[in-house]
């Protein structure tokens, strides 16, 4: 049984579909990276999964439990960290976790044990301050702790790293890494390096639909070797070269890297191999460097989104 199953999920605001017939399955034990541009519908989807927003259509089930809007019943499986977690400023971290534990129906022995475990996991064990005086990074870490409090089977993190500095981001990603294998994680973000660091499965959301979904290895393999880096040392004629290259039928994207380098992404790489030298010869340009690149997620992401 999948941990999370979304079928035909639609959310309409006025005349626009924020989420448009989304189908998505998250398998047990995976760290699922939910990718998309700002406004792609990630947060809206997560709000519907946690019962905070009302879907216009479609079905969501968590461990086989149907999610109903306005009801907290299916949330017993879920630990949730919203994009900007907000706490009661007058409480201290331990107090807040205790409140969360009690709300989840844990007994006081469990709560005491989890309080200690989690506060040391997120590095807040020695903090006696009230939450009101916390920095963004500390709030985010406390947010992870509260999401893990009742040992949920599915952890949903909405952009947990977006607003943090590099150190804060690394801390959060390290925490997620330590959870790998024990908890299923759904993790929305637009920061691709974060995904590469911790996720094993990704889904790219674009205009409210899943544009690409699969294991990260598989996707990287599928898209590998489809980009080429080439160097041509005459910057003045770069524009002309770009124009000519874009006329080739199998070139899908051209990106400049510095004044003399181009990155091409192609649908048919061997076509380019044959075409490139004749083209340079016709234009009477020198070709200094021609290299097939390992595909990175950024190229995949841009290609998928442009391909829509």
């Amino acid at each position: 049984m999948p941990v999370l199953e979304i079928k035909g999920l639609t959310k309409r605001y006025g005349s626009t579909n924020a989420v448009d017939g989304l189908n998505l399955t998250v398998e047990k034990g995976s760290v699922f990276g939910f990718l998309g541009l700002n406004g792609a519908g990630k947060t809206t989807t997560i709000r519907m999964v946690t019962g905070l927003a009302n879907p216009t259509g479609g079905e969501i089930s968590v461990f086989g439990d149907r999610v109903r809007f306005g009801s907290a019943a299916s949330n017993r499986h879920i630990g949730f960290l919203p994009d900007v977690p907000e706490f009661y400023g007058f409480m201290r971290p331990k107090e807040y976790l205790t409140l969360c534990g009690k709300l989840c129906g844990m007994n006081s022995a469990q709560i005491a044990r989890r309080d200690e475990e989690l506060l040391s996991l997120v590095g807040l064990a020695d903090v006696r301050r009230k939450i009101g005086g916390f920095s963004r990074g500390m709030r985010q870490r406390l947010g992870i702790a509260q999401a893990l409090m009742h040992e949920p089977e599915l952890l949903i993190l909405d952009e947990p790293t977006s607003a943090l500095d590099p150190v804060g981001r690394k801390e959060i990603l390290d925490i997620i890494s330590t959870l790998k294998g024990r908890v299923t994680v759904l993790f929305s973000t637009h920061i691709l390096s974060d995904v590469q660091r911790v996720c094993d499965t990704i889904g790219i959301l674009h205009h409210g639909r899943l544009a690409l979904c699969g294991s990260l290895d598989e996707i990287e393999k599928r898209y590998a070797g489809r980009s080429v880096r080439l160097e041509m040392p005459v910057p003045e004629r770069m524009q002309e070269l770009k124009d000519r290259l874009s006329e080739l039928p199998f070139v899908r994207g051209i990106r400049e890297e510095g004044p003399t380098q181009l990155i091409l992404s192609c649908s048919d790489i061997s076509g380019l191999d044959y075409a490139i030298c004749p083209l340079f010869a016709r234009m009477n340009l020198p070709l200094l460097h021609f290299e097939r690149m390992e595909s990175n997620l950024e190229d995949v992401f841009i290609e998928v989104i442009k391909g829509e």
Binding site: T50, G51, L52, G70, S71, A72, A73, N75, R76, I78, F80, P82, V84, P85, E86, F87, Y88, C100, L103, C104, G105, Q146, H150
Partner: peptide
């Protein structure tokens, strides 16, 4: 409006 309610309501607290 602040968002503290959302944190509580995604636990097992009914509306």
């Amino acid at each position: 409006s602040k968002g503290t309610a959302q944190m509580m309501l995604t636990k097992r607290l009914s509306r």
